[in-house]
């Protein structure tokens, strides 16, 4: 039997700072919308086909699914160097509004790596707007993320046996509004300084909120029976103490966001498909 037909559309949202999206609409009225927030830089490209496969699967399950490229990244126009976190929040908001105008139903954000931190950020600045989060291999600290990104510049200098700069110096340059070339990307000071401030555990939701946020957290593990990493365990514990429901599990397979060659991670797709989304 053939799978029910899905309608695929592509376009741009946010006239001020256009962002590309790809939307997979189920054949029948959707029971929810899910919006994919991708990782950053090279990781975004590496994860694209895995995310697209999962988005198509969601749409076949009756969930309208959309993939967003933030302004200045991927297929979106704009200059990465001059974009800001506020622009990316607007991109998410515009896409959600467009989806909700078409069908009013629950909304999930699905973030991969940096996208997970942005999903958490958005659900905090728009309390009650998001029903659930699906986080794949989340980045828990924006500061650590920016440091790791800048380390790529350090690593290039180390590899070329040139005089190294510290990531602290680089962060100071970014905070002063300068831009830096890192791994083939020109990074703007405003965006990096914005991202540096995001911390998974600093997010919260108003106590008066009727609709409490729940999170599905999937984290990579090299071995079948290994648990969550120490940093994630601490972050999840911090969120749970704030009354946020977190269901965490591990998956095995290729860490596709890290790999030079294309990899497979069927376990991540399978475990996501078993969740009660």
């Amino acid at each position: 039997m053939n799978a029910p037909a899905i309608e695929t559309t592509a376009g741009f949202v946010d006239p001020d700072h256009p962002a590309f999206f790809l939307h997979f609409m189920p054949a029948h009225t959707p029971r929810a919308h899910i919006v994919y927030l991708p990782p950053f830089g090279e990781e975004m490209n590496r994860c694209r086909s895995l995310a697209a496969a999962q988005a198509r699967w969601f749409s076949h399950q009756g969930i309208s699914s959309a993939i967003l490229d933030y302004h200045g990244t991927g297929e979106s126009p704009g200059d990465l160097c001059s974009t800001t976190l506020a622009v990316w929040r607007d991109n998410i908001n515009h896409l959600l509004e467009q989806l909700l105008r078409r069908h009013h139903c629950p909304v999930l954000l699905w973030g991969f790596r940096l996208g997970a931190l942005l999903a958490m950020d958005f659900s905090t600045i728009r309390p009650g707007r998001i029903d659930q989060l699906l986080l794949w291999q989340p980045i828990v600290s924006g500061s650590t993320f920016v440091t790791q990104l800048l380390r790529q510049r350090t690593a290039t200098l180390v590899k070329n046996q040139e005089k190294s700069e510290t990531t602290t110096d680089m962060k100071l340059q970014l905070a002063a509004g300068q831009s830096l070339d890192v791994g083939g990307y020109r990074l703007g000071g405003t965006l990096m300084t914005d991202l540096d401030k995001l911390e998974m555990t600093s997010f919260s939701q108003p106590e008066t909120l009727d609709k409490k946020l729940s999170i599905f957290w999937l984290e990579h593990s090299a071995e079948e029976d290994a648990g969550l990493g120490a940093k994630s365990t601490r972050a999840i514990s911090g969120l749970q103490q704030k009354g946020i429901q977190v269901a965490a599990t591990t998956f095995t397979g290729d860490p596709v966001w890290q790999l030079h060659k294309r990899g497979n991670c069927d376990d991540l797709l399978q475990k996501t498909r078993e969740l009660a989304l």
Binding site: Q148, R151, Q152, A155, T156, V158
Partner: peptide, 10 residues
């Protein structure tokens, strides 16, 4: 390359 070094450190 630099990306591998960064991944290894992480």
């Amino acid at each position: 390359n630099s990306l591998t070094i960064t991944t290894l450190i992480l």
